[in-house]
Design a binder for these strands. Sequence first.
DNA 1: ATGCTCAAGGTAACCGGTGTCATAAATCGC
DNA 2: GCGATTTATGACACCGGTTACCTTGAGCAT
Lengths: 360, 360
Amino acid sequence: MTVISKTAAGSAEGSTEIERDRRRPTINDIARLAAVSKKTVSRVINESPFVKEETRARVNAVIDELGYVPDPQARGLAFRRSFLIGMIYDNPNPQYVVNMQQGILDALKGSGYELIIRPVVRSDPNFLSDMRAFVERQKLFGVVLPPSVSEDERLAALLNEIDCPYVRIASVPLDEAESMVVTHDHMGGAAAAKHLLAHGHKVIAHISGPLTFRSAHERRRGFCEALAAAGVGMPDAYVMEGAYTFESGMACGEALLALSPRPTAIFTGNDEMASGVLQAARKAGLRVPEDLSVVGFDDFQIASRLWPPLTTVHAPTTDVGRIAADRLIRGEDDGRARRYDPDSILPYLVVRESSGPAPA
Amino acid sequence: MTVISKTAAGSAEGSTEIERDRRRPTINDIARLAAVSKKTVSRVINESPFVKEETRARVNAVIDELGYVPDPQARGLAFRRSFLIGMIYDNPNPQYVVNMQQGILDALKGSGYELIIRPVVRSDPNFLSDMRAFVERQKLFGVVLPPSVSEDERLAALLNEIDCPYVRIASVPLDEAESMVVTHDHMGGAAAAKHLLAHGHKVIAHISGPLTFRSAHERRRGFCEALAAAGVGMPDAYVMEGAYTFESGMACGEALLALSPRPTAIFTGNDEMASGVLQAARKAGLRVPEDLSVVGFDDFQIASRLWPPLTTVHAPTTDVGRIAADRLIRGEDDGRARRYDPDSILPYLVVRESSGPAPA
DNA sequence: ATGCTCAAGGTAACCGGTGTCATAAATCGC
DNA sequence: GCGATTTATGACACCGGTTACCTTGAGCAT
């Protein structure tokens, strides 16, 4: 594997025998040892069909022996495109970010592509020009856009303009499906609703995320529609809009628990707000789940650290990230990109101890 | 800023007037328009002192007008080194990871360097060879090594061997200080001890992280030494070794709360284990902080989501990341690298509601 | 005036790959 | 059996920068 010294032995032009020993082998080394031109080596690397089987085998043998790996910079320079995938995001939740990164990295593993991360502030006046500079400079191979960056049409337009492939992750299709991974958050909302209905709850409340976010909107829609389908209504006062934050969850929770009749169950748009509701319940002297059931969304680690452990809808963030990145690097390989099985990334309910039968 | 069309106007060799319009300007474009050789442009870019002030100004004017930015790939190819910083880590805590990333990115902002992240499994048999392949392939400019990757001497040796700069982050100096950022975790442990002592606690317990981690060892040492200095002893049974996980915190917490006399305060090596202790206390029917004070370490978001909100030692992870990356890209600029002020990254106690006076 | 030094800048090769096009060898049609 | 394709390969320029080395001219000592 580390027999690189062979290169030195092989070349004898004007350089002392010993020098240039431990240097990574280049395409020239391979070409010389395989007795072909560098162009042919390049063909082998890029799997061109116009190489005789015998030649290919010989070149590959040398490549393997020297442990040659093409230099991504040189390749990128000639290709006019790097082998870097960008992840541009503004989701403030650390666990979301890490899960998504992990999924992308899983897909990239062994592919030769690397991940560059880029947290952004979408409201920054320089956002778009910064993105343009970033993507153009790095000549990104493609970018993954999780929500809510994925919902920024200006950014999508910019990427189209500078011809940078991207995959958007969102609750609903935002454009032709090829460049999207859809998370179907409304089904998660529905799952939460069914769970609460099954436990006999009638007075139910919901705290959504900011409705400017598709995810917030979809989770709420799924929840409300499932309730309505079961003939359970939710008066306006029982549906609040939070900010996806702990603090907003606590504030909305306090407001909801002051209503009469008091809701016996609250579904929140994410786990952060659910933890806020748990605090509010505690301050109001309510027991969970005896007096109040709480259901969150995300199923992040915190869900099991809370008291009581949180019933929540699992969002398969890592899988989604993996699929998105996979799309990007497979490209339009075989006809259309391999379609993913939507079932594999549908949200589903995880029942813990924060939910139970409606109080009598 | 987007006056790139000028390049087309400037060149009139064998190409139709309109073509090659919206292409990023290259060093050749700058050279032509500034009427100098590309080498001189290169000198200006790299701030060579051997350029006449007048020439420099002229070149810079053209650069600004065209919004020229050198291509990192081409530059890297010639430099034999990329402008990519690697972060190699195995810390499983999402918040730690994100905070560290944020710090590094802050330092890199506007510098032209980009961050590549690399979660690893240090026990993987291919760990070292993977790292070697990764670093060599990408020709990384440098890497940041947070704990516990930073404590892997094999990795440090490998990086030395392949001549890749690195900065290690750890609780104690592991080598000559230039390539280290020291977090002085023992001072955090001491701060926790002083807090509990001030509240009159006498029967105190500690759950450390795995002692193979320096951080766990140092936090424990700081804590124990401060207690000892105050004449408060901790019998062996009151000092347990956890795994930095929620589950281990819960298990150790149950064990400690079964001791007689029961500890009135527990200090844990991180917030995760503290959340486990809170669960254990709840199961044991104890009130926090009335019956039991709990102090954690890290001050991650979860600390304020728990009930009661957790008193904990703040670890300035983001700042540490920033300083580490700063070191890397400043290099040995002016004589020795700019020294950081250790005070700026010392851990400190954040008092919330999980700690209080010892029960009478 | 001559020679030397040094600032200022240019030339050409090179970093490690790929694109384009030409060419040699192999296959095919009839 | 010979031109026309097709297959397989090489030569060479190029991607966008940098390094190594050379040239020029001004300033200064001799």
